[in-house]
Design a protein around this nucleic acid. Sequence first.
DNA 1: CAAAAAATTTAGGTAATCCCTAAATAAAAA
DNA 2: TTTTTATTTAGGGATTACCTAAATTTTTTG
Lengths: 145, 145
Amino acid sequence: MTKIEVTENEAKHLKFIYRQQYEESRRVKTTSLAKFFGVRPASVTEVLRNLSRKKLVIHHRYRGVELTPKGIKITQKLLRKHRILEVLLANFLGHDKEKACQEASRLDYHVSEELVNSICRAYGHPRLCPCNKPIFPDPKCEEVR
Amino acid sequence: MTKIEVTENEAKHLKFIYRQQYEESRRVKTTSLAKFFGVRPASVTEVLRNLSRKKLVIHHRYRGVELTPKGIKITQKLLRKHRILEVLLANFLGHDKEKACQEASRLDYHVSEELVNSICRAYGHPRLCPCNKPIFPDPKCEEVR
DNA sequence: CAAAAAATTTAGGTAATCCCTAAATAAAAA
DNA sequence: TTTTTATTTAGGGATTACCTAAATTTTTTG
């Protein structure tokens, strides 16, 4: 039950890996991460080593990276936050999808589950974000089906 | 015109200093910062040294710390973000003042000016936060007087 | 399939940040 | 003026996030 700690940078890597792996069914390679984050491959390898140490990914040397069940769980929590924020930004403030995503990206890591859940309630427990990606439910967020 | 960079921790220090200095008219001493942040005085001294290097505070050795005009400006921007977020959290999500402040504290540093301004617009350019503290205006945020 | 090319990791650094303790120093109180 | 308290300095430690160059593995290609 020990709380898993990830840095903001690690969280960004997890989100990217999740999206590639589950939403684009792509093998996630070091280079694509490096390109996306604008850093050298060696820097990505280091992040992957740390995420491995935390048992959030399995790093197949030279072949790619994959989330563990634990990694999936924490990433879905992050994406839930991200997407609920997108709902708020799009609906309440009229941001377009891109803008909403951009802003949500800088905030998701820092938002508490509590706040996310109150936004979720305020919008009647939406199941999709403005980009039509699923919003993972939180059992602590009472959903009236 | 070089953008001033502060870390999140430095930003927290600036906010605390501002509140003490301007809203409680208290001399801001190392110890009060150390107590508030739960760290040793030496750690505060270090932060103050860095803020001095960035010309955001004047550190009167052994006697206290004071914001420079530049320091005031950037802190007011931070507090603007903080307070606009409080408005959103209190009005839209029904958070009480304490809760709103708590959540705003973790987010203010990360929110873009653009987002803050759209919240500001959505609430008709409020002048006070839920705690009745002033919300500093942003010229880029069209205010209809 | 073997050689060349490309991708990736390892090794070894650097710099910034945040934190600490112990000792020195300055300010405030007695 | 002495004692006490507050603060700073000196000197570390740990973590994070980068990097380059060299070694290694995989992939491509002739």
